[in-house]
Computed example of a mutant assay.
Amino acid sequence: MLLEINPLVLPDIGLVFWATVAFLILLIVLGKFAWKPIMNAIREREQGIEDALARADKMKAEMAAMQNENEQLMAQAREERATMIKEAKEQTLKMISDAKDKAKAEYDRIVTEAQATIAQQTNAALTEVKNQVGGLVIEVSEKILRRELANKAEQEKYINELAEGVKLN
C-alpha cells in the first residue's frame, strides 16, 4: 500500500515557475510603489500615537500640578479663615472688655456722684438741724433768761457762784 499521489494535486513545473515570476513582479511593484507609502503611513501613525501619549502625559503632569496648586490654595484659604476667625474672636473679646471697662467707669462715676450728692444733702440736713437746734437753744435761753432776770437777788447769787468758779491765773 503505497501511497499514490494524484497528478491533479501536484503542480506542474511551469505553473510553479510562472507563479514565482508573477509573485516577484508583484513584490517589486509593491516595493516600489506601495511599500514606502504604507511604511510612511505606519510611521506617521506611530508618531501620532507617540505624540498623543506625550500630550496625555503632559496633561496628566499639568493636572497633577494644578491639583497641587489647588491644594495649596485650599490650605492657604483655610489658614486665612482660621486667622480671620481668631481675629474676630479677639476683636469680640476686646469689645466686651472695653464695654465692661466703660460700664465699670460709668458705675464708679455714678456711685461717686451719688456719694457726693448724699454727702452734700447730709451736710445741708445737718446744717439745717444745727440751725433749728441753735434757734431752739436761743429761744429756750431767752425764756430762761427772762425768768431769771425777773429776780435780781437770784441773779446776783448766780453771778457770784460763777465768779468763784472761775480761777484767775
Rank of each mutant, 00 (worst) to 15 (best):
I49Y: 07
E50G: 02
D51T: 07
A52C: 06
L53I: 12
L53R: 15
A54S: 14
A56H: 05
D57G: 08
K58Y: 01
K58S: 04
K58N: 04
M59S: 08
M59D: 14
A61W: 05
A61K: 11
E62I: 05
E62N: 13
M63Q: 08
M63T: 05
A64C: 04
A64P: 02
Q67M: 03
N68E: 10
N70W: 06
E71H: 05
Q72H: 02
L73P: 04
A75G: 10
Q76A: 08
A77Q: 12
A77C: 10
A77L: 11
A77F: 10
R78I: 07
R78F: 05
R78K: 15
R81S: 13
R81C: 09
A82K: 01
A82N: 06
T83M: 13
T83V: 08
M84C: 01
M84L: 11
I85Q: 10
I85A: 14
K86F: 10
K89P: 00
E90G: 00
Q91H: 15
T92W: 12
L93T: 05
K94V: 06
I96L: 06
I96D: 07
I96R: 07
S97Y: 04
S97H: 13
D98L: 11
D98I: 11
K100W: 00
D101I: 02
K102C: 01
A103H: 03
A103L: 02
A103M: 00
K104F: 01
K104W: 05
A105S: 09
E106R: 04
D108F: 03
D108I: 05
R109C: 01
R109V: 02
R109T: 01
V111Q: 03
V111A: 03
V111S: 00
T112C: 01
T112M: 12
E113W: 00
E113V: 02
E113Q: 09
Q115C: 00
Q115W: 01
A116F: 09
A116T: 10
T117M: 05
I118Y: 06
I118Q: 09
A119F: 00
A119Y: 03
Q120K: 15
Q120M: 15
Q121Y: 06
T122I: 08
N123K: 15
A125W: 01
A125D: 04
A125H: 04
L126D: 11
L126R: 07
L126E: 09
T127S: 13
T127N: 15
T127A: 13
E128M: 12
V129Q: 07
N131E: 15
V133R: 06
G135E: 11
L136W: 08
L136T: 07
E139M: 09
E139W: 11
V140C: 07
V140F: 12
E142C: 01
E142G: 03
E142T: 03
E142I: 02
K143L: 03
I144Q: 02
L145A: 14
R146M: 05
R146H: 03
R147L: 12
E148G: 02
L149W: 07
L149R: 14
A150D: 15
N151F: 08
K152I: 12
A153L: 14
E154I: 06
E154A: 09
Q155G: 13
K157P: 00
I159T: 14
